[in-house]
């Protein structure tokens, strides 16, 4: 296996300095990066260990919560204030991976995990994301797990994070640090569509680091519904995060995001719009769910996701709407 050098960063500024090398990679939990390294997909010459940086703090405020990028998934899912005020985040985290992975993996790393597309993960078949210009065998091949939204002629791989779907529904922002300082990027702008550069997945530049995720307060009722091929430790076929604000029985605000269907976490804006001002009942949920797959572009083996998405949206609305 590809050998690499190792450096342990003790301060964020030191980590950023070390990352000026273009062949360096940050490592924290390592649960995705080491899989990619073993498959020969990631070949860093220098691993910069950021796991001991003091970026693991979960800090609730009145108007939201800042979740440190190095907080472990299990610690965030177990945080009493996250569970009480942002249950969507706890539900999405607990729906992902295994207990062992959740104990090691970090919030920032979860957002940056690479796709589970089998052609990408193979390490040697053509893949425009891994080897730009080599082609996309998924488009004419095995594409049951691939995207019905956001694909391009170069890539149709889905984004695999459950957390990112919840954060998309909550209008979270990602705090990014680089040599030139830090900036806040809305989660809707953080992930890039594949277009003709599917190897670029986020707006993070070389040597930039996620420091934290900022999530605004929500008064909404939330649900995360994940449909998968086995009951646990499996990626989503389709998942939906719902956050509903209901006043006097009327939907005042609706936010819906889906996973397993898009090349990035996918907001379902037409279904959201169909809910606003409606009585929060089964008829309105059915009507909104019917809009969920508008604009979908299914492939040969994933057309079932078009209807499955509608049904998953309906279920998520029923669960969220049924909460007190």
């Amino acid at each position: 296996m590809h050998a690499f050098d190792y450096a342990r960063a003790t301060e964020p500024s030191q980590a950023l300095d070390l990352a000026r090398r273009p062949d360096a990679a940050f490592i924290a939990g390592g649960t995705d990066l080491l899989q990619l390294w073993k498959a020969g997909i990631a070949r860093p010459e220098l691993m910069i260990d950021i796991s001991r940086l003091a970026l693991d703090i979960v800090k609730p405020r009145d108007d939201g919560i800042a979740i440190g990028a190095l907080a472990r998934l299990s610690d965030v899912a177990d945080h009493p204030i996250v569970q009480a005020r942002w249950p969507l985040i706890a539900e999405a985290l607990n729906a992902g991976a295994s207990a062992q992975v959740r104990n090691a993996a970090t919030i920032g790393g979860n957002l940056l995990q690479r796709t589970r597309c089998a052609y990408f993960r193979s390490g040697d078949m053509p893949c425009n994301k891994r080897a730009p210009g080599s082609g996309c065998p998924a488009i004419g091949g095995e594409n049951r797990s691939h995207a019905i939204f956001g694909g391009s002629p170069h890539c149709v791989a889905t984004h695999a994070s459950d957390l990112a779907v919840a954060l998309a529904a909550l209008d979270a922002s990602v705090r990014v640090a680089g040599p030139a300082g830090s900036r806040l990027v809305g989660i809707g702008d953080f992930y890039l569509l594949p277009g003709d550069t599917p190897q670029r997945e986020t707006v993070l530049g070389q040597g930039q680091l996620i420091c934290a995720v900022d999530v605004p307060a929500t008064a909404g009722r939330a649900a995360y519904v994940k449909v998968r091929d086995r009951a646990s430790f499996e990626f989503a076929v389709v998942s939906v995060a719902a956050d509903l604000v209901i006043d006097d029985g009327i939907v005042a605000r609706a936010r819906l995001a889906a996973g397993g269907v898009g090349t990035r976490p996918w907001r379902l804006t037409e279904a959201e719009a169909a809910l606003i001002g409606e009585r929060a009942d089964a008829a309105a949920f059915d009507k909104a769910a019917a809009q969920a797959s508008n604009g979908a572009e299914p492939l040969a083996h994933n057309a079932f996701k078009v209807e499955l998405l509608r049904r998953t949206v309906r279920r998520a609305l029923q669960v969220a709407g049924g909460k007190a």
């Binding site: 190792y6 899989q35 073993k38 260990d49 295994s98 062992q100 992975v101 090691a104």
Partner: peptide, 29 residues
């Protein structure tokens, strides 16, 4: 599996279970 999928390598590090195959030894200082 050596890829974090099977759990045969599970150990406790500071009391928490992780997959030893997906952890660099040097990071366990």
């Amino acid at each position: 599996c050596d890829m974090g999928a099977c759990g045969a390598c599970t150990v406790l590090v500071d009391g928490r279970r992780i997959n030893a195959c997906l952890a660099l030894a040097v990071m366990q200082e």
